[in-house]
Nucleic acid binder design. Structure first.
Length: 596
RNA sequence: GCCCCGGUAGCUCAGUUGGAUAGAGCAACUGCCUUCUAAGCAGUAGGUCAUGGGUUCGAAUCCCGUCCGGGGUACCA
């Protein structure tokens, strides 16, 4: 049984016996002892003073004595201020190490016969432009949280909703048709999503120029915006698309295909994937039907101009438009359709939307609308809301070209990893293929860790010139420690030193004990990350773990330790640290190189 | 205007859900490679936890006010 549980129970019993007091759950606070104090586990005694009617010192001593008598693993204790610090026997930590070492799934909860099923939606791109840094955060969070939920025993279905229809793609289509001169990914060698994105920017350029010209002619800004020839042409294309115009639809399909091929390459590079992809062109009509049903059932209402609305003022929200006056659907209409389709397709217990925090209001409304439409699962939607990525120059805007392109960034980071490796004289003995694969792992490790280590809910800053780092609190630092341990383990193997599972040892240094304690925390951390939807919790744990390992590594020798029991223990400790670091980093979607 | 989120070292971020003397990395400075990988380790310096009150044994953490920043706010997604 876990030591915290034992101490908790013993404390309950002590309070009953000593002070005839029945404590409730959260009055008993057990935490890890601060590093600068003697002891391993700390019980906070302040809350008991009201009942013990004694000083903190006396109360701590009495409870400490009781626990020491009744819990064998507690060797001794000390009381400082209101904190009862307990010393746990080395055997406890060693047993924990052995079970961690032997259990290939240590820290991971395996799904039971009937696991909770969670669908995670992430990525969700528009098909008119390539992926940028903001999408990277989304994709990494979505992938990682999926892995973390799996590690907590859930069955996870990863899904992507592609926003493949609407005015934005019509803009790119129109611009390509007008100025593209038949340029294709094949004849230009350009990645499809970048090619289409180019015409999205091209559209905006012309559109802006037209607006300016119209304004010079005396039109107001609003008039100019709605009268510009480019936007009229794009609108016309949208109408044609909705009317199923053959030529428009086939061009739409062709250009979307280009984009999908491009996205696939980026997804592959990022190492993210999906079990099922939905397209809004396939779900928006379902949403529309649902909204019209809502009108019939008087859940929603129609205005004179025939636009459809939901009145949410009773829920403390505003009125929300669901269908435009021309009958076309809006964003939330599509999401209603998509949600319904998903619950039809899969038996899911919970739906998680990985979407930026600028859409908090949208998802609040979506849950209410689904509820009003009679879908019982509306309230089971969870919006995993994350903050924006900001650049030193401010917010990213696709149309204005102030974005950090995903492909460019990844390629650039791989180049930096390559340069640095050459500079440090590393990996020279490896084949070109293995070396290149390692550069890729390091570059992506740096990028993924940089983004995932920060609390997802917060906005974060990314400075392209300074954020690409491989030293300190970074992914490569953790990968490096892993490679270092692997190197030691290889050398052990070469010398026929095999790890003996029967641990014997006579002493335990402070650094070794720190590592044992840290190892025992891994399962708690995985659970916490799952409960709080926070890959950052895992990232920070991995850093602390390997940071402590490096101190241990520097202070004590492993292979040249003369005492074979001690050497055996240190090898097992190292192997376990490497394995946990790898398991943790894998939950972030980060691969670990054997050498670097 | 109204609603939501945030403000911790020069910079980027942690802070175990109210606990002990607030921690890392980067940048600066100082040491440590003939010894298991120096992408490392050790050290110096750097803080009115935006701010004013409140709650209590105890507040960066909870409550109220103020300031600053970001986002949303009925026919973009």
């Amino acid at each position: 049984m876990k030591i915290e549980t034992l101490i908790h129970q013993a404390t309950e019993a002590a309070l009953k016996e000593l002070y005839n007091f029945v404590a409730d759950e959260n009055q008993i606070q057990i935490q890890n002892t601060r590093k600068d104090q003697e002891g391993d586990i700390t019980l906070v005694v302040f809350p008991f003073l009201r009942f013990s009617k004694k000083t903190a010192e006396e109360t701590g001593n009495e409870i400490g004595e009781y626990i020491k008598q009744n819990v064998k693993t507690v060797k001794s204790f000390n009381v400082i201020k209101g904190f009862l610090n307990l010393d746990i026997s080395n055997d406890y930590w060693l047993d924990n190490l052995i079970s961690a070492y032997n259990n290939a799934n240590y820290g991971i909860v395996l799904p039971d016969e009937n696991p909770r099923s969670v669908m995670v939606e992430y990525s969700s791109p528009n098909t008119n432009k390539p992926l940028h840094l903001g999408h990277i955060r989304n994709n990494l969070l979505g992938y990682s949280i999926s892995e973390i939920l799996k590690a907590n025993g859930k069955k996870v279905i990863k899904t992507n909703i592609v926003n493949d229809r609407g005015i934005h793609i019509c803009k790119s289509m129109y611009a390509w048709q007008k100025w593209g001169m038949g340029k294709t990914p094949e004849n230009s060698g350009m990645k499809g999503d970048h090619l289409v994105g180019e015409y999205y920017v091209e559209f905006d350029k012309h559109y802006k120029a037209e607006i300016a010209e119209l304004q010079e002619q005396g039109f107001s800004k609003e008039e100019a915006e709605s009268k510009a020839p480019s936007i009229l042409a794009a609108r016309e294309l949208l109408l044609k698309w909705e009317a199923n115009d053959e030529e428009t639809v086939s061009r739409w399909k062709m250009m979307n295909e280009w984009v999908y091929k491009g996205f696939d390459l980026t997804y592959k590079k990022l190492g993210v994937d999906f079990d099922r992809i939905y397209y809004e062109s396939e779900t928006y009509l379902i949403g529309k039907e649902e909204v019209l049903r809502g009108v019939r059932e008087k859940v929603f209402f129609q205005k004179e101009d025939s636009s459809v609305w939901a009145d949410l003022t009773d829920d403390g929200l505003d009125q929300k438009i669901l269908l435009r006056s021309d009958g076309t659907s809006v964003y939330i209409t599509q999401d209603i359709g998509t949600a319904k389709m998903r619950y039809n397709d899969f038996a899911i217990d919970k739906m998680v939307y990985v979407v930026g925090n600028e859409q908090n209001y949208h998802f609040q409304i979506l849950a209410v609308l689904l509820d009003k439409l009679g879908f019982g699962w509306g309230k089971d939607l969870y919006h995993f809301s994350y903050g924006m990525v900001e650049l030193p120059s401010g917010k990213m805007k696709s149309r204005e070209g102030t974005v950090v392109d995903a492909d460019d960034l990844i390629d650039e980071m791989i180049q930096v990893a390559r340069d640095m490796s050459v500079e440090l004289g590393k990996l020279e003995s490896l084949s070109k293929e293995v070396a290149e694969d390692t550069f890729r792992m390091i570059a992506l490790g740096a990028l993924k860790y940089f983004i995932l280590k920060v609390d997802p809910r917060k906005n974060m800053m990314f400075d392209p010139t300074e954020s690409i780092d491989f030293n300190g609190n970074t992914g490569p630092f953790i990968q490096y420690t892993f490679a270092r341990i692997k190197s030691v383990l290889r050398k052990a193997e070469e010398n026929n030193i095999i790890i003996d599972k029967n641990l014997k040892l006579n002493s335990l240094s402070a650094k070794e004990k720190d590592l044992l304690k840290r190892i025992s925390l891994f399962p708690v951390v995985v659970k916490e990350a799952g409960d709080n939807y926070s890959p950052a919790v895992i990232a920070n744990y991995c850093y602390d773990l390997v940071k402590e390992f490096n101190q241990f590594y520097h202070e004590l020798s492993i292979l040249s330790e003369p005492n074979t029991d001690q050497r055996n223990f240190r090898l097992m400790l190292s192997a376990t640290v490497a394995e946990i670091a790898k398991r943790g980093m894998n939950l972030l979607g980060i691969e670990m190189p054997e050498r670097m």
